[in-house]
Design a protein around this nucleic acid. Structure first.
Lengths: 167, 167
DNA sequence: TATTGTTATACTCTATAACTATA
DNA sequence: TATAGTTATAGAGTATAACAATA
């Protein structure tokens, strides 16, 4: 087997398309969130669940759709939060198959610490951008996120609401 | 343990800061790359290694720094690529502790298929953005990526070059 | 003694299939 | 029969520690 002499790069970009940048920065962001949340006592996977539940109670399926996590995977995730008494699970009287999940009183202090940690990571990631650029980046990312919403473990079209249970 | 009545969201954003958007979209991007690369026969972890090696031969340490992967983890990654005869490892005559890694001739066809797959995923992720917005997003992401370069498993300051071995 | 690459190990995250209970 | 939630299991990714060969 011989080695290739020196293949020229495809175009102008060395190896960094926007998609790969997203994938790479996603890892960096997740890693930093993980490090910052250690003192708070929660892991990255719990972050979106807690923040979404703060908007109001939901069924597990609703939560799974909202945070784009497989319903199977959500079980263990909620078990962690229940073990720490940060959430409450109770049966839905209307349909006893369903569990209604909501945030516990005890979670309030944690959520405050969590907000602080998240804001710090956010700030650390975007130090190089001024406020206008941050806003710009966030707007672009929001649009991309909305456009890729039909992806992931959930295949149902979320025609109703992205953040249910706020009633 | 009682349930919290209805805690109001922190500010205007429901649960989507730029940092969390990055983390979330990173997962989406990685998942899509993974799906698109199945027919090509490589996994997402190999992507950056191959694209970086295309710029020229490197030592394993140089490659590890360039793609921000732990040197330990890089071993198994390169074993995969070597098993498929996509790369060649040989001893550096100047320092026999080092391995020089380069792309094999056989990899050329794969790289072409890979470029196509990457471009398709890229396009699928950014459908909602026009060319100017894509350029804008990429520029912002590049800056953030450069600013967070001192993160990750590598702690050495990359003062020389981000993509070594191009000589 | 320090460095390059390697192996072994474990822990987290994710994906699939099969099960219980309710409808 | 279909749905909500659960369990079990296996795979991929990642991080740490210890080791061999070379400098």
């Amino acid at each position: 087997m011989e080695a290739l002499e020196s293949a020229a790069p495809p175009d102008e970009t060395p190896c960094t398309s926007a998609g790969q940048l997203l994938a790479g920065l996603g890892k960096v962001a997740t890693r930093r969130f993980g490090a910052a949340l250690v003192p708070v006592g929660i892991r990255p996977r719990h972050l979106n669940a807690l923040l979404t539940l703060r908007a109001g109670p939901t069924t597990q399926q609703g939560l799974a759709e909202a945070i784009r996590v497989d319903a199977v995977q959500l079980v263990g995730l909620l078990n962690d939060l229940e073990d720490e008494e940060l959430i409450v699970r109770r049966r839905d009287p209307a349909d006893r198959r369903r569990h209604i999940v909501e945030i516990s009183c005890k979670a309030a202090a944690r959520l405050a610490a969590l907000d602080t940690a998240v804001a710090e990571v956010e700030d650390g990631l975007l130090t190089c951008l001024d406020p206008a650029e941050r806003k710009q980046l966030r707007a672009l990312l929001l649009r991309v996120a909305a456009a890729t919403a039909e992806d992931g473990p959930v295949d149902e079209a979320p025609t109703e609401s992205a953040c249910p249970g706020a009633a």
